[in-house]
Amino acid sequence: MDVEFAVRYPFSSEARKVLQDIEASWNEPAMELGIERIKKALGNKLGRSTAMHREEQLEEIVAYAAARLLLGHVRNRFITNTFAVAEAKRASQYFHQEKEGTLEVLGEELGCVAHREETGYWIALPQYVRFAPGAPPYKLVNRRLQQGKVFVNRHERLRLLEEAVRLHVGRLKPVLDPPPSVKKAGEQLKKIIPPAETPSIAFQTGSHPPCIQQLLEDLKRHENLPHHARWYLAVYLLHTGMVVEQLISLYSNLPDFNEKITRYQIEHAQKKGYSIPTCATVKSWGISCPGCRRKSPLQWQGLRQGGTHERKGKKPDS
């Protein structure tokens, strides 16, 4: 058994073997470790392992497993998604130093198999679309394809692997009949779950175009939004008169929310006074517009294009 591998990748089958070997039990101390790991993930503090000794290493492996057990019991989308993002980013910190053989093993386990050639890798198309991030360079339409395989370079291959980790970690089995220690830990965890931030935005059907409505629904469910979707939503809501703090509060529902970066980006968008893009541009980013045949979101409610400070009764900044 490779305990160091299991510490680096506690979601792996190697980690499961370790847990079986030590006959891990889900008592209160184990659940405490799980809570701590979740807290680190929520606080963006889940980094590379600092375990020096075998006991510490085993604790880390137990902590991950306990955290997942807890998440399967509590079933809060926000925490699960945030935890999955944190574990994926942590794992990716190790990827760059790994040999090809190790990456192959991980890829096989996660269903993200890449076949190496001289200048990069080929990945089967169904796997590529499952694990490709939402950013425009990863859109299938712009990729090199060959008979059902997609070409990626090493950096992209590692990025896909990171996505595969995120999806794997975020896919939880519901824990239906938890032992008392898990229930108790669940109660503790619920106290630290932030309430869903939903500043008042008109959610009545028809108050926003379907594309915006869908993005707001996704946000409410703490789903991750790709970059263009976040930008578009922010520009649109600034045009409706939402203030920066409200927008930041709304975006805090995102599983990888970083207040500093979000504040910078929203204030930047406000200062620049970006125009709301046309529907053709929105669709080109892959944002869903179910059943809508308008040409511009501005047509939906007669929103006036005039800078992000414009609100009813207020003149735009010159």
């Binding site: 679309v129 490709a132 339409v141 712009n142 669709k283």
Partner: peptide
């Protein structure tokens, strides 16, 4: 494959984001 991935296949055929 899930809904988002299927949309990516349609986007591919429609050339969205090309």
């Amino acid at each position: 494959i899930g809904s988002n991935e299927r949309k990516e296949l349609v986007d591919y055929i429609r050339g969205l984001g090309l």
